[in-house]
Nucleic acid binder design. Structure first.
Length: 295
DNA sequence: AACTCGGGGAC
DNA sequence: GTCCCAGAGTT
């Protein structure tokens, strides 16, 4: 229940749930609907289904809750964190937990500046937790670390004045405790397909020029269909990828013909093309056309 | 490595 | 509104 859910939110559900399903056998005997009903309001309902499945699996195989990390970890809905929590708290085995609290506390104590969403930073934090773990009282140690994060080492306003380990905290010493942990979510990548038009005339190519006041001001580029409403589209001449910050374009090149001469465009000869600023997408296009486009 | 899955409390 | 919560499973 505590997976991604605050203790305070869980408590009433926890009490009700245990009253209704006091042991593994009763939970296993219940229908999934009953379990979901008791869970409804808590969210992440896959947790309930997994717990129910785990109970049934345990009961089918003897009814004894597994007491070894790898067997616990193999149960549905139990990942690294929960397996370590059960193994250490219930069975006194030396497995370090790494939850959101531990990530915050240790990233500050170590002044871990890497993105804690990344695998390398996660590995460093996990190794630190394993190193620090009190092997005689792993359950108490794990819970103490999580409790420190939940009550003192708070996300936005860490209460360093009342922190028992402040003197060992590197982030505190550096004055960056409020900047940690770094949880940078990479910007969402947007994918799109664009078409660039290749309009030729007497060995020259039709280009448009980017307007004043925008990005890439004054740069030249091939027109798009929207620029030339009257154009008749011809055969496809090529295709390539192009990336601009968080966008990933698939750019298709098509030949086109015009009846009316557009005013805001320019005909550029190959020599002239070499002498003007050009967007990278258009340069890639011209490189690709080099084989097919002869003056 | 990124996504999805819920709902709530703190700010 | 934004962040984050005692994460796990899937793609």
């Amino acid at each position: 229940m505590l997976q991604q859910t605050r203790v305070a939110a869980v408590l009433p559900y926890y009490r009700r749930f245990l009253r209704r399903f006091p042991n593994l056998k009763r939970l296993a005997a219940a229908s999934e609907d009953e379990v979901l009903q008791a869970w409804s309001g808590l969210g992440y309902y896959q947790r309930a289904r997994n717990m129910h499945r785990a109970a049934r699996r345990i009961v089918e195989s003897g009814g004894r809750f597994p007491n070894e990390y790898s067997a616990i970890r193999a149960l549905p809905g139990i990942g690294d964190y929960t397996a370590a929590a059960i193994a250490s708290i219930a069975f006194g085995q030396p497995y370090a937990v790494v939850d959101g609290n531990v990530i915050r506390v240790l990233s500050r104590i170590l002044a871990e500046r890497g993105n804690v969403r990344s695998a390398p930073a996660r590995t460093r934090l996990r190794k630190a937790a394993e190193h620090l773990l009190d092997r005689d009282r792993p359950g108490d140690f794990n819970q103490a670390l999580m409790e420190l994060g939940a009550t003192v080492c708070l996300p936005r306003t860490p209460q360093c004045a009342g922190c028992p380990v402040a003197k060992w905290c590197r982030a505190r010493r550096l004055g960056i405790e409020r900047q940690l942990p770094v949880r940078r979510r990479p910007p969402r990548i947007e994918k799109a397909t664009r078409t660039l038009l290749v309009v030729q005339r007497n060995g020259a190519l039709l280009l448009k020029r980017r307007p004043v006041g925008g990005q890439l001001e004054g740069f030249f580029e091939l027109p798009e269909p929207a620029d030339l409403p009257g154009a008749r589209l011809g055969p496809k001449l090529g295709e390539f990828r192009h990336a601009i910050t968080r966008r990933r374009y698939r750019i298709r090149l098509r030949a086109a013909e015009l009846d009316l001469l557009p005013s805001e465009f320019l005909w550029l000869s190959p020599d002239q093309l070499n002498a003007v600023p050009m967007t990278t997408a258009t340069r890639k296009a011209l490189n690709q056309l080099a084989g097919t486009w002869k003056r």
